[in-house]
Design a protein around this nucleic acid. Structure first.
Lengths: 224, 224
DNA sequence: TCGACGATGACATTTCGATGACACGAGAGG
DNA sequence: CCTCTCGTGTCATCGAAATGTCATCGTCGA
């Protein structure tokens, strides 16, 4: 799950990403609408956290604009308390949720995770494939009932694969969704992470390499 | 357990928090409804002690207002004797308890602890996990039957963990519930308190660090 | 058979938790 | 008023785990 935070206040621009990263989300930061626009065209995000008021304008107007083009990524607006009446306006512009400043960090994390989940159109909190269960809420993975200890990255990659069972997922896709923008797409971080995942997912091979196209989950031998 | 005391009388604004702190509660203080509102948005409390009459209005009206938005934190109203008839009114506004001034300190502590417990929806007075018993009423902890001498902070942290066995609890959550607003979330107070707890909870490791996500109680390991 | 791509082990770097030492203030007792 | 003790918080440092980089090897398929 990858999130873009658009915030110009220096304190918040540090605190908010830090908080979200504790929830195993990959976070990028932008300070202006222009920078956010750039990032949104280059990368794909599962959720965007927008401060309402930014140096180069009202983010709600930007979102409104993009929505009319069919852009559908869920948005959480951070609204100052004294612009409370803007709440409704925020929604009319296609924002999916709002939070009034100041807000509790725990609340923010909960909302963002909720929006990410919603983006997956009602994805169940527990993903299953073959004898693997992945609990997105507790961040736990079990194979054949045995609890595994995965690192944040490993969990993130496995989650992404399990949402798309049997589908080949490219390294580029994985880099874009499980790493932040500092990741080098040419490096073989993905390969290494897959290798580590495999060695923890003891038992019949689950993650199959699809030559030239990435990786996919599979429960049977290399047919096709 | 963290409590907000909203009191404008200078003497009470010192005495009440002092009393509650002796019961291992983290206490914040506000002098007005406005300040209380601010604090309630920023932090999360397990209970709020409201003086009925405050410089900027009747706190019961404020509580009534918040209740309509679904706010559910238990409230204890401090009411002057000559406004005794307001009692009922206080309850109608969603207050869970009241105390008539002047009151006995012991009574206040008992009521607040009771309300905190109620917040945990019928949480039993004695928490158990593995061979540890934590008596929330007596403020006593035993491991394998042996009474331990914990400080207020240590008790508070252990209690918070024991209410959520096996669940990873973030440092932020702990800071928000066991410390007051003066705590620096970046500091490693939590780590140090956990360390002190561990050294007092001799025996098999109970408190497990979950890298990047905090701490959790556990009685068994997990496969790798 | 050759070449591209994936697998893998070794190693470097970064991040994060653990820990000991110390600072500071409140309160008890002389 | 001084001093001692205890609770609590801060800091610097250590070390382990997570993550990333690199070199090399193996293998699949044209």
């Amino acid at each position: 799950m990858r999130v873009l935070v658009v915030e110009d206040d220096e304190d918040l621009a540090v605190a908010v990403p830090a908080a979200l990263r504790t929830a195993a989300l990959a976070v990028d930061v932008a300070g202006t609408i222009a920078a956010a626009d750039e990032a949104l065209w280059v990368n794909s995000y599962d959720c965007v956290v927008f401060d309402r008021t930014l140096p180069d304008g009202d983010s709600a107007l930007y979102v409104h604009h993009r929505r009319k083009e069919g852009w559908a990524v869920p948005v959480l607006f951070l609204t100052a308390r004294d612009t409370l009446t803007d709440r409704v306006e925020g929604f009319e512009h296609g924002g999916d949720d709002y939070l009034i400043k100041p807000f509790a960090v725990a609340e923010l994390i909960a909302r963002v995770l909720s929006l990410c989940r919603r983006a997956g159109t009602g994805r169940p909190p527990v993903l299953r494939y073959a004898d693997v269960e992945l609990d997105t809420g507790r961040r736990e993975v079990r194979r054949a009932g045995v609890l595994l200890t995965l690192t944040a990255k490993e969990f993130s990659v496995l989650e992404y694969l399990m949402v798309r069972p049997e589908h080949a997922v490219s390294r580029t896709d994985l880099i874009e969704h499980c790493w932040d923008e500092n990741a080098d797409p040419r490096a073989n971080v993905v390969d290494v992470t897959i290798k580590r995942l495999r060695s923890k997912l003891r038992g019949p091979e689950l993650i199959q390499a699809v030559r030239g196209r990435g990786y996919r989950l599979t429960s049977e031998g290399s047919a096709g």
